[in-house]
Structure formats: structure tokens, C-alpha cells
Computed example of a mutant assay.
Amino acid sequence: MTDGIARVRPGDLIRAEDFNLILDRLADLAERVTKLEGTPGTGAPRITGITPAVPRVGDEMRITGSDFGLATGAARVFFDTVVLGTFAAGSSDNLLVFQVPEITGLPDEGRPVVLQVSNRVATVTRTITVLPRLVAPGGRVDLIYDRPLAPRPIGGEEFVLAFRLRSRTGVPLTMDIVATVSDPLMQRGTQIRDSAMKPVRSGQVTVAANREETFFVALQIPARTPAGTRFSVSVRAKAPGLESAVGPLDFEVEAAAPIPDRDIQLNLDGADPPHVLDGTTITLPPGGFAEVVVSAVFERVGTYIIELSKAPGWGVDPSFPPGGFVIETTDLGLDGRARRPFSISLVAPGAGGPPVGLRVTGRKQDGAGSRELTLQLATA
């Protein structure tokens, strides 16, 4: 007897139970071989997806497919000659989850690696690019706020802020840029743009070792945003082991510039004494006096209002009529224009002070447009 199966000689009678016992032993042997060699079927594992497509050493990687042989312990993954036989929780015969192993000789830009998935019956092969592990560099990266490209945020217009990354490390770095705007409507349209003003969808900006790189944060101010609306912008730049931030930077939405009225011109004709005038800048000694002459030119009939802005610390006394200039048809000359000069008397502050702007505005009483002339008042 061997394992319950009787030996027979030529001419012996083979009973049904003896034959069934042989069949049982064969079925048991087939089951044990299947467990050792993998699942039945085609025998070949199949890959349907690899995430991420370009992994980095240390990343969690996921391979989807079928017939991986994990249930029988047959699953193996190879990166060139590096073999993995242990997989993370959640793995199955259709999903392998694991950490990308250390691979020697990877350059900064990565290199092609032969990826193999085996279940001991067959092996399937792919070639992928593997990047080296990210290592926090020494030194630091400074995030610097430069300037706005437009002097003021205006409803319905784009408002762009310029920033610089200044690297003090010996390696190139790719920084994740995150811009946060306090106003939710403005946040929706916020873009990160590279030094060529092209949108960067990934939000990443690369700065070379020990160099500077400019980037921009572009906001779209909604058209119906009221003048006086306040908002702030904060920007953060981050890479493994490095982080720098700026903000909050505070801004206020201003009213849109008025539409220029082509029927109005404002010209600076001169000053008395003449030497105080240089272009549109009037410079007086502390407590000094001067008079400037402005000509308003009108090309249509109507009533035109002249207004002056405030000039803190300065004495300002204009000679134009408070009710404006009334232009009749008979006032228009052969060239179709009417000229109305007026003077503005100026007295500088006795203690001097920083330069201030004096804005002269001309507008038609029933019109939407206007014209402006801005004078710079300074003391010396």
C-alpha cells in the first residue's frame, strides 16, 4: 500500500474505489500546483494602468490590471534588477500598491527603467521613467513682492502683481506657488503666470541654482466691483524642506478713469514767474507764490464745468467761473473751437513738504466724458 492505493499485478481486478482514489489524488495534486504557480486561466498578468506615470523614488505607486497572483503570494514587481515582493494594504490580484524602491544612478531628470510584473507563470514588461528621490537642499529661497503692473485695481480690468523667487541654494528648484485672495470672486479668476506672462496651470515655477526667477499673479477684478472695495493677496512658494511667503498685501478697488471727451482740451500755457515751471511741475520755495495759466478749448456748444482736486498744504485759488463756461454757437471760431483761458494762483506751504498732484478736470455738464490735466506741485 502507498498512501492508501493498492499495488496491482497483471491480471488483478481493479476496483472502482481504487480508481476513484487515484482521481482524488490527481485533483489534490492539481490544486496544490495551482497554488504554487498562480491562478489558472491565461497565466499571464495584465497591466491596464500605472499611477503616477512618471514616479519618483519614494512615491506610492499603483498598478492596476489582473492575474497578479497576490492571493497565492506569487506577485513580484521588478524595477530593472530591484525586486519587490511586499505590497501595501489595499493590494489584490487586480491592484498592486507599493513604494517605488531606491534605484542607483538616477540623474536629476530621471531615466528609463524596465518595469516587470510577474506571477511566476508569466511576466509582463513596461518601460517607464523614474525620477530620483527629492532631497531638501541646503540654503533658502526668498519670495519677493516686486510691484503691480497697473497703478490701481479697477473693476472689470485685470490686476497683475509681479514677484521674484531668489534662490540661495546650489540646485535648481521647482516651487509650488499658491496665491490666496480674500475676495472669493477675485480668487476664481486668479492665475499664476511665468516670466513670459504665460499661464502656468500646474502652479509651479522653476528657479535655477543661485538665480532669480520672475513670475506673476494675475487677478480679474469683477466688472461690478464697487470703488472702495478692499481685498488682500497672500502668496506662498513651497518646495520640499523650503517655504517662503508674502502677504497679506492690501489693495482697494478704485473707480475707472473717465472716458476722455474729445470736445475738450486742457493746455498748460505758462506760469508767472516762468522759471518755476518745468513741463507740468511747478516748484516754489516754502511760502512762495506763482500763477499758472490754463487754456480750456471746447469744440461744441454747451456748459462745461472745471474742477480742481485737493492739494494738501497748498493754497489754490482758480479764476474760472463756478458755474462753468457756457459756449454758444457764436463763441466758436473759424476753426470750430472756443478758447477760455483761466489762471490758478498757488501758494506753497511755509514748511515745505513732499510733492503733491493737482488735477484739473473739465467736463460737459450733461456728458459722461471728461478731460484731465495733472500738475505736480513741489517745494525746494
Score class of each variant (00 low, 15 high):
residue 25 R to T: 03
residue 137 P to N: 06
residue 217 V to I: 07
residue 254 E to T: 09
residue 104 T to E: 06
residue 26 L to R: 14
residue 26 L to Q: 08
residue 379 T to L: 04
residue 152 R to V: 07
residue 142 D to P: 01
residue 73 G to T: 04
residue 270 G to D: 12
residue 54 V to G: 01
residue 301 V to L: 13
residue 85 G to V: 11
residue 301 V to K: 08
residue 44 A to R: 07
residue 329 T to M: 12
residue 237 A to I: 05
residue 280 T to K: 13
residue 280 T to N: 14
residue 159 F to G: 02
residue 163 F to T: 04
residue 109 E to S: 14
residue 35 K to S: 06
residue 62 R to V: 15
residue 51 T to Y: 14
residue 376 Q to L: 09
residue 104 T to I: 06
residue 378 A to N: 11
residue 69 G to D: 02
residue 266 L to N: 09
residue 203 G to M: 02
residue 139 G to N: 05
residue 363 R to P: 03
residue 105 G to M: 13
residue 118 S to V: 04
residue 359 R to V: 12
residue 199 P to V: 12
residue 115 L to T: 01
residue 166 R to S: 15
residue 26 L to N: 12
residue 375 L to T: 03
residue 170 G to E: 15
residue 142 D to Y: 00
residue 136 A to R: 13
residue 15 R to D: 15
residue 77 V to R: 00
residue 226 P to R: 01
residue 46 R to E: 12
residue 235 V to N: 02
residue 6 A to V: 06
residue 90 G to H: 05
residue 104 T to H: 03
residue 187 Q to H: 04
residue 255 A to S: 10
residue 211 R to H: 11
residue 326 V to T: 12
residue 318 P to E: 12
residue 215 F to T: 02
residue 168 R to E: 10
residue 28 D to S: 09
residue 164 R to P: 09
residue 330 T to A: 09
residue 224 R to S: 14
residue 29 L to S: 14
residue 259 I to F: 08
residue 127 T to I: 10
residue 108 D to F: 07
residue 282 I to H: 01
residue 362 G to P: 00
residue 207 V to C: 06
residue 185 L to M: 12
residue 110 G to A: 08
residue 192 I to A: 00
residue 86 T to K: 10
residue 344 I to V: 15
residue 33 V to Y: 13
residue 200 V to S: 04
residue 330 T to K: 11
residue 66 S to P: 08
residue 209 A to L: 05
residue 380 A to F: 08
residue 107 P to I: 02
residue 359 R to T: 15
residue 180 T to C: 04
residue 227 A to L: 13
residue 79 F to R: 03
residue 183 D to C: 08
residue 325 F to E: 13
residue 263 D to A: 12
residue 263 D to P: 00
residue 132 P to M: 14
residue 235 V to E: 01
residue 17 E to P: 03
residue 183 D to Y: 00
residue 216 F to D: 01
residue 188 R to S: 09
residue 222 P to Q: 01
residue 219 L to K: 01
residue 195 S to A: 15
residue 183 D to F: 00
residue 250 D to T: 10
residue 82 V to S: 01
residue 357 G to L: 10
residue 303 T to C: 07
residue 32 R to F: 06
residue 302 G to F: 03
residue 284 L to Y: 06
residue 270 G to N: 06
residue 64 T to Q: 04
residue 106 L to E: 05
residue 93 D to Q: 10
residue 29 L to R: 15
residue 208 A to I: 04
residue 380 A to S: 15
residue 324 G to C: 04
residue 373 L to I: 06
residue 371 R to L: 08
residue 56 R to Y: 03
residue 167 S to A: 13
residue 68 F to V: 09
residue 357 G to P: 07
residue 258 P to M: 09
residue 59 D to I: 02
residue 198 K to R: 14
residue 200 V to F: 13
residue 248 P to C: 11
residue 346 L to W: 08
residue 184 P to N: 11
residue 368 A to V: 07
residue 213 E to P: 02
residue 10 P to T: 13
residue 25 R to G: 00
residue 182 S to I: 05
